Simulated scan of single mutants.
Amino acid sequence: MTGACGSLGDVPRSGAEARRRLQQAALELYRERGFDQTTTAEIAARAGVNERTFFRHFPNKREVLFDGEADLRAALMEAVAEVPDGLQPLEVLLCAFQKAGRILEENRPFSEPRLAVIAATPALRERELAKAAWLTEAVAEALRRRGVTGRLADLAAHTGWAAFHQAAQAWIDDPSQSLDAHLRQTFDDLRTLSGAG
């Protein structure tokens, strides 16, 4: 259908599609121009929507790169809960991170440049640290629900999250191995460090 505004073929037909296009447009612009030099109006224009549509989906241009945080939190807590009984806390976390890591692997074309943009942008690094703290607390809570004591649950969650982060970076740097392989290697390294390897 065409009209005064031209073809409507490129207009996103659903909220999910508009959201996806806004995320992709933002990532492209942040890589081209930098986060600070990019406006929400430019993101909306690149995605083929108006700025009001942008703000229906995201409160600001920073949050475009942090969409899905609540889903990841829920997935991690569920993954920790589903691990069979009888495993030590770090083994529980390895199993949970292997399951959650599939989300990253499925979204590698977005995940990889997203991490690069965050690494290059102080405001985004600060937001990433806040996200990590929130997710780490969720993991600790999931461990406590499994009966791990408070102090050990916190230590395991922080250690496990650091290992997950290191494995994800190794996977970005060396895509010849799967994220799962990098996770297993990183947790093996943890056991070696603790003298349990």
Rank of each mutant, 00 (worst) to 15 (best):
M1P: 05
T2H: 05
G6Y: 09
S7L: 10
D10G: 07
V11L: 14
R13N: 06
A18S: 15
R20S: 15
Q24S: 14
A25D: 09
A25K: 01
L27F: 11
E28V: 12
Y30D: 07
G34C: 12
G34M: 13
G34S: 09
F35D: 06
D36G: 08
D36F: 02
T38N: 08
E42Q: 15
I43N: 03
A44E: 11
A47S: 10
E51L: 11
T53S: 15
F54I: 12
H57T: 03
R62K: 00
D67F: 07
D71L: 14
R73W: 04
M77D: 08
M77F: 07
E78T: 12
A79Q: 06
V80G: 10
E82T: 07
L87S: 12
Q88F: 11
P89W: 04
L94Y: 02
C95A: 15
R102Y: 07
R108I: 03
F110I: 06
S111N: 10
R114T: 10
A120G: 04
E126R: 05
R127P: 02
K131A: 12
A132I: 00
W134F: 14
A138Q: 10
A140L: 02
E141R: 12
A142P: 02
L143R: 03
L152T: 07
A153G: 09
A157D: 00
T159H: 09
T159P: 01
W161D: 13
A163L: 12
H165S: 14
Q166S: 08
Q166A: 14
A170M: 04
W171R: 01
I172T: 01
I172Q: 03
L179R: 06
A181G: 11
L183R: 09
D189K: 12
T192D: 15
S194A: 10
